[in-house]
Design a protein around this nucleic acid. Structure first.
Lengths: 232, 232
DNA sequence: CCCTGTGAAATTATTCACAGCA
DNA sequence: TGCTGTGAATAATTTCACAGGG
């Protein structure tokens, strides 16, 4: 890549978000969480070494990551916990409040709807959808479950841009199509199904069984461990 | 790492698992799933192009991945669906049946316990643990929820090597310690907490809020899109 | 010819190691 | 002196592009 030509970021508070590598973005939430914990513990500043340990990464990686977003630590001291927290929040777009639609109120959907971690971190479930007669109309966390048919109206009216799909796999693509048409541009998909969406829509997939299969591989590898020197 | 000293794998059907890159391992379950779907659809063979499309990756990557595990496709034709399915299963260690312990039977834990995707793909939840009086002793999917105190005995007795942590964050490290002591060597952690475990234990973390925060970043980036030439 | 398998090139990510500021 | 920020080195991953077998 061309380097050194975006001189625009001289004293900018944060770098152009387009330039932040995916790998870094994926770690920012972890840093944010660690900072939150440190802040609660009364720490005003933190070194890259300490923050890295709290987030479970090595300190060179942490510093490189933070440098991507133009963050200025204090040499000889470390980072101001509160300032850094604010900066990461800004880059992640967490200042803005996000309304999230949740489609599929089965077991997993119910768990997600009640997941404290969402509300805590600026994501409010604003609408719930399902198709089952026994589910539609019930209340969950103060929200009435609506029929999927209402999705286009509600999502459009509430300007919801992020949605979570927790439906059975067979319904996922149809739901995604409907969400996209209603203006959603980010989807978190729990259904084990590859979704086909336009380029401007981001999809992240979480497949619980896939995670276990990856662990299974490592188990398998370990039990084959004829060579105990392995881990280098 | 030294290479070339475990000559045992001469004509072995699959390459030494130690040599398969992580990025590839993470995709194998997706290929497996796609193959399953194709098999049900009556396909006997499949080209790298078609399988890649079904799995949502590009075909060069797919071929490179499959070549890592020594898989032999048929030039001019493609891969035998059944053979490839078997081969990936073997590499992932799915031939062996895996008993899984689930700790934390809250909303999320209940959803996980009932998740069809686990049982479907060779993972049987073999034990449930919690500490809440109103949960311990209840039945869930034919299994009695046991008190956390019983964890060491049960996990050891049933030779459980894979566990899922779905407890509140504050309990996660204690639970992990206990699991490790009882012989568990792979942990899937849903609690938003960095776990400290010995080197021989693999941990995979799934943080639902992190996924949303990553989506939030992309939303933020999109809405900043002052420059339509973007990708440059 | 079609489609796999794979070297080589390109890109991306991680780690090292140290100059330089507080 | 201690710790950040970052070039440079290394490693991992992806993509290209094509030789060669069926």
């Amino acid at each position: 890549m061309r380097s050194g030509d975006n001189r625009a970021t001289r004293t900018a508070p944060a770098a152009d978000p387009r330039d932040i590598p995916d790998a870094t973005v994926a770690r920012l939430p972890e840093y944010l969480h660690a900072l939150h914990t440190l802040g609660e513990g009364g720490h005003r500043t933190v070194s890259s070494e300490a923050l890295a340990a709290a987030a479970g990464v090595n300190s060179a990686k942490l510093r490189k990551d933070l440098s991507q977003l133009g963050s200025y630590g204090i040499r000889g001291v470390g980072y101001d916990v509160e300032v850094l927290r604010q900066q990461i929040s800004d880059v992640l777009g967490l200042a803005r409040h996000h309304s999230v639609a949740l489609v599929g109120v089965g077991h997993l959907g119910q768990a997600l709807a009640g997941y404290a971690g969402f509300a805590n971190r600026g994501f409010a479930i604003a609408a719930l959808f399902d198709v089952a007669d026994e589910t539609v109309g019930t209340e969950l966390g103060g929200l009435r479950v609506r029929h999927l048919d209402e999705l286009p109206i509600v999502v459009t009216a509430e300007r919801i841009s992020i949605a979570v799909i927790a439906t059975p796999p067979v319904a996922a693509q149809t739901v995604a199509d409907s969400l996209v048409k209603a203006g959603v541009t980010s989807i978190l998909n729990f259904a084990p199904r590859v979704l086909d969406v336009p380029d401007n829509v981001d999809v992240r997939k979480v497949d619980l069984a896939v995670e276990l299969q990856i662990l299974s591989f490592h188990e398998h590898r370990k039990s084959r461990g004829a060579d105990p020197r392995e881990a280098a």
